[in-house]
């Protein structure tokens, strides 16, 4: 589904990704771990199409298409979802309005009619129940005055409504208390399917207790320096990132 080869990217003059290769197939859950500054969030932003990052080499194929040719909105409509580490507050834009606009942008791309208002509400309420979100959040400004946990639940709500082929969740666990973490994990697990891939970008192993990955990759200085199964995450938790770096350099 997602095929990243030797990807190099920078922001301004700073090289961040230095030859990253990653292959993600439908049905798989990958965890990308790594110390601060290793390029985890940059990878998520580059795949989503953030224009501050300049891709200087390598390729990214998504469902056989050259992803780097597409604008961020086209990537989203093709089925990529980025769950933001810092969801943006947009006062004056109603949460329901954004959800509906996003769903309809995708439906239009797929040649479908706009979602029926009743159908939309029913679907939104269903997904909100799963995430233990109060339906009144639909009528608030997007993320406006939301707590950290509410913002992250709202990201997962958007993901659940959009049913992406590939979800990249950037530090979705950061700043969550245990109840919010469980709710978010429930939302993500509900979306796991043989047709869908999920990439979890995380600093800590904690999230992986609730969402079990098929693969774990360690990112350091813009490259994947080690890959393994979920036991790698546990080993990292015990030994720290320094251990992998030393092992990689040896």
């Amino acid at each position: 589904m997602l095929d990243i080869k030797d990807l190099q990217a920078r922001i301004g003059e700073t090289e961040i990704l230095r030859g990253l290769t990653l292959n993600v197939k439908a049905g798989e859950v990958h965890a990308i771990m790594g110390p601060n500054g290793s390029g985890k969030s940059t990878l998520a932003q580059v795949v989503a199409g953030h224009e501050d990052y300049e891709v200087t080499g390598g390729s990214v194929q998504f469902k056989g298409k050259d992803l780097l040719e597409l604008a961020p909105e086209e990537r989203a409509r093709e089925g990529i979802f980025l769950g933001f580490q810092y969801p943006v507050e947009i006062p004056g834009v109603n949460n329901a309005y954004l959800l509906k606009a996003a769903v309809n942008a995708k439906r239009q791309h797929q040649g479908l009619d706009e979602i029926d208002a009743f159908e939309f509400l029913k679907l939104a309420r269903e997904k909100m129940a799963l995430l233990e979100m109060d339906p009144k959040f639909l009528n608030r400004g997007v993320n406006e005055g939301f707590s950290g946990g509410e913002k992250k639940r709202n990201e997962i709500l958007q993901m659940a409504m959009l049913e992406p082929d590939l979800a990249i969740l950037d530090e979705t666990d950061s700043g969550l208390d245990i109840d919010a973490l469980k709710a978010v994990a429930n939302g993500v697990n509900a979306l796991r399917s043989p047709d869908r891939a999920i990439i979890l970008v995380t600093h800590y192993q904690r999230l992986l207790d609730y969402i079990e990955p098929d693969f774990v990759h360690v990112l350091s200085a813009g490259r994947i320096i080690r890959s393994g199964d979920k036991s790698l995450a546990l080993e990292l938790e015990k030994k720290g990132y320094e251990w992998v770096r030393e092992a990689a350099n040896a």
């Binding site: 989503a48 199409g49 953030h50 224009e51 604008a71 961020p72 909105e73 990537r75 989203a76 409509r77 979802f81 980025l82 933001f84 969801p87 943006v88 947009i90 006062p91 004056g92 834009v93 954004l98 606009a101 996003a102 942008a105 995708k106 791309h109 400004g141 958007q158 959009l162």
Partner: peptide, 25 residues
Amino acid sequence: RALFYLRARGISKPDAKRILTRAFA
């Protein structure tokens, strides 16, 4: 940041600009 957020949800750049301008007012 808000522009990119909306675009990452599939909303075109001109539409995202329109939405944010209206929200401001």
